[in-house]
Amino acid sequence: MKRAFLLRALTIAVFALVAAFAPAKAQTMDKVSFGTNWVAEAEHGGFFQALADGTYNKYGLEVTIVPGGPNNNNRILLIAGKLDFFMSANSLQSFDAVTSNVPLVAVAAMFQKDPQVLLTHPDIKATKLEDLKPLTLLVSKEGMTTYFQWLKSEYGFSESKVKPYTFNPQPFIVDKKSAMQGYVTSEPFAVEKAANFKPGVFLLADYGFNTYSTLIETRRELVEKKPDLVQRFVDASIIGWYNYLYGDNAAANAMIKKLNPEMTDELLSYSIDKMKEYGIVDSGDSLKNGIGAMTDERMASFFDKMVRAGVVRSDIDFRQAYTLRFVNKGVGLDLRPKN
């Protein structure tokens, strides 16, 4: 009898232990959808890393990444409630949401620097941004309404020197007295491959165009009703970016290439190297506060510049465009290489 009683007691104890640990192992996963603003590429790598290496799962998230593209407007899907999060290009989109009274808010800035550059021919021997003013500038329609207005107000560039940029590098390659817009992570690579020369690179962020880039944006309603979900997605994405830059990113790159068959290992490697070299993701405030960092001072500075450039209205409350609630917590700092 004593032996039977002891066996029952041990059985009950084992079941109690299993029950105690079961919730942690069998927790309900929150389904989350995240839309990017372009086809899969290294510039989205941290998000794919968090998906590929199971980081999102560790944070209780079952994430679906919905790539953008020329015919996909994922931001509209976010506004309509079809997506939970969106990767917005820069802070101007956040300001525009306030102007248009759209209830979206930026909750993290994965890029401390916007990758926007102007490229020059090596024969020009330009050493500062002002040296580009006499050149023919190849600028896209979107660029004309955003960063070029800043170039006009801050540096005195003239629209008379501008020709349309059609995302084809050939006009730049054949005209040695021209400069072409691009991203530091891609267009210099394309030019070098096509023309066999390394272009001069002027990163606008290093000359005062201090917008954040690759922000995580969501609906204000989600921030208010499910802040824990937002925090977990932000934290897991931050971890993903550290691991993508400094760890084994093979699985993430394989996922990117599967979704974008035109992507090559060479371009992926180049893009990652340039993100590190120019401090696109991890520099400035992120060195102390972690990737994703934002500050009120930085937002105010960029807002003031865009007001002076006539890009945004001065009467909007730009502070409604973002929240610092989910960043600046030092998440993932231990994953940065010590040397």
Rank of each mutant, 00 (worst) to 15 (best):
V162F: 03
S153G: 14
Y183T: 09
P171I: 10
L151A: 05
P171Q: 11
Y155C: 01
F189Q: 02
A179C: 01
Y165T: 04
F172K: 05
E192K: 14
K193H: 10
A179Y: 06
F167D: 06
S158F: 03
D175L: 10
E187W: 09
Y147M: 06
L151R: 02
K161F: 03
G182Q: 12
P171A: 10
L151Y: 02
Y165P: 04
Q181K: 06
F148N: 00
E142T: 13
P188Y: 14
K163R: 08
W150D: 05
M180F: 12
E154K: 12
Y183H: 13
T185S: 15
Y165S: 15
Y155A: 00
V191D: 05
S160H: 03
V162S: 00
N168C: 05
K152W: 04
E142A: 06
F167M: 13
V162Q: 04
K176V: 12
F157D: 00
Q149G: 00
Y165D: 15
E192D: 08
E142F: 09
P164W: 09
F157C: 01
M180P: 08
V174Y: 06
T146R: 01
E154T: 12
P169L: 13
Y155E: 03
G143L: 10
Y155H: 14
M144K: 07
Y155D: 03
V162C: 07
E142V: 08
N168H: 04
F172V: 10
Y165V: 05
S178G: 12
L151G: 00
N168F: 10
F172W: 10
S160F: 02
T166N: 14
W150I: 01
E192T: 14
G182R: 07
G143T: 07
F172L: 11
K152P: 02
E187V: 09
F172Y: 14
N168Q: 14
G143W: 11
I173T: 01
P169G: 07
E187S: 01
I173K: 04
M180H: 09
Y155P: 00
T146W: 04
D175M: 09
Y165Q: 04
V174T: 13
G182D: 14
V191W: 05
D175W: 07
T146S: 07
A179G: 04
K176W: 11
V184I: 15
S160R: 03
K163H: 01
V174W: 12
Q149W: 07
T185M: 15
Q170F: 09
I173H: 02
S153K: 10
T145G: 03
